[in-house]
Nucleic acid binder design. Structure first.
Lengths: 253, 253
DNA sequence: TGGGATTTGTTCGTATGTATT
DNA sequence: GAATACATACGAACAAATCCC
């Protein structure tokens, strides 16, 4: 479909997935050259990736400190959900206007994957799919700009859940997704709006107190599922140039 | 207020203003080193500025061609206005919720400047102020993310007006701004929503057929009001290193 | 059509600032 | 508290691709 997933896009997608699935936790440091070695590209390219991630509020750069996974404040959290309400309301309006059977099929298929992930107990997959449901819906609006904004704000909300939410806080919204699909398919905008508002309110309400556990692993280990789609043996040279002790230090608070 | 308007911000603001006020027209080329010399900074910094401008849809970069002022398609245009409707609806809701006398004073002052600019017949100033009215309103929502999104989409709409709108297409919306202020001050959300929807519809409707005139000037001349706030004699070395013929070539269509 | 000049994309080296010991 | 080490910010040079003549 898309011409070339130029390595910069690969790294962007990989980091984004890692953050959203909470393989990288808020506050974790992301040294430029280390990431560059993992994805086998130079610091300049890493900088571009970091720039995009920063624009979406996923990481924080600037100062002359190493880039860190963003730690949104409580104000940021409520702001993100406020904007999300407004955007997804418009999404519903447009999707109903342009509704067709293919949309329903795609949403049903996605919902099936969500249920499957929930049964398998795969928390990272559930978190990822819960967000992708909303971005998928946004793409059906036929408005690329709206889709981009929704993707942006959904990412921010994912980080908020990572900071303030309980673990496994995303796997109980599947039924709400089902109701939303049904309301949209019935063309009932008012019901769909209310359901969406309720749904997002539930998600927001789950953001209360976060349990922080310490699991000091290496950056390479955390990112191994995301680099080159496997154990990461292909892109990384077998002979690491004398740096066995690379390790991510968690922000102390 | 803000600590340091580090030269990168200055250049960003200058280019943004130049594009919005149509001193730079859609399709105009923006060579990196030329802009760098104008603002006396290196290409690396210019690249960062271009990156931000590109993220907001003001310019187009990539594909090893020189950066150009964006030429939004008709689909992009309607998309921008759709999103804008949704965002500004939420803005009104929040501003009414957090309304206070200082907000009214600030809006009245801004409106006065709009009227003054309209009387003076200063088209660029009118265009700029018309957009800033909406960003000012968005800042009063108390939601920084919403404010950012509104600023983004307002910029896009400004470029749309530059491409498809008639000249001076922004200076007749002042009365509508007044009505919106009054409705918000009265706490009447429904009326404010309708007025805003009507207002944005009017702005969108003015985007019909654009008259394109040719006025081949040099990039330095077009940007002279924006660089260093004056005639640009301070930053530019008096002895130009043998390049009197730098000139912006308009995209043929 | 082909060659030359110009411009972008990328990489590498140096300097400045922060955090650590 | 001072010195060391490290990471980022910035700038200059190289190579590739494009546009113009």
């Amino acid at each position: 479909m898309s011409g070339k997933p130029s390595r910069i896009d690969q790294a962007y997608t990989a980091l984004k997935s890692a953050i959203i699935e909470q393989a990288l936790r808020p506050g974790d440091k992301l040294p430029e050259d280390e990431v560059g070695q993992l994805f086998s590209m130079s610091r300049t390219l890493v900088r571009q990736v970091f720039s995009r991630l920063n624009a979406e509020g996923l990481i924080e750069i600037g100062g002359k400190r190493p880039a860190t996974v963003a730690i949104p404040s409580l104000d940021d959290a409520v702001a993100a959900f406020e904007v999300r309400q407004a955007l997804e309301r418009e999404v519903i309006t447009l999707v109903i206007k342009r509704w067709n059977p293919e949309h329903k099929a795609a949403l049903e298929a996605h919902l099936a994957r969500e249920i499957e992930a929930a049964k398998a107990g795969s928390a990272p997959m559930s978190i990822r799919l819960a967000g992708e449901f909303h971005t998928l819906l946004a793409e059906m609006s036929g408005n690329p700009l709206l889709s981009r904004f929704v993707s942006d704000v959904v990412s921010r909300c994912s980080v908020v859940l990572a900071v303030y939410g309980r673990p496994h806080s995303a796997d109980c919204g599947v039924h709400e997704h089902r109701d939303i699909i049904d309301a949209i398919a019935a063309g009932d905008a008012t019901s769909a709006w209310d359901l969406m508002r309720h749904h997002l309110g539930e998600v927001e309400a789950r953001a209360l107190i976060g349990s922080s556990e310490d699991s000091p692993r290496s950056l390479a280990d955390m990112l191994s599922p995301y680099v080159e789609g496997g154990a990461g043996t292909k892109a990384r040279p077998a002979k690491n140039r004398g740096r066995p002790r690379l390790q991510v230090v968690k922000e102390n608070r």
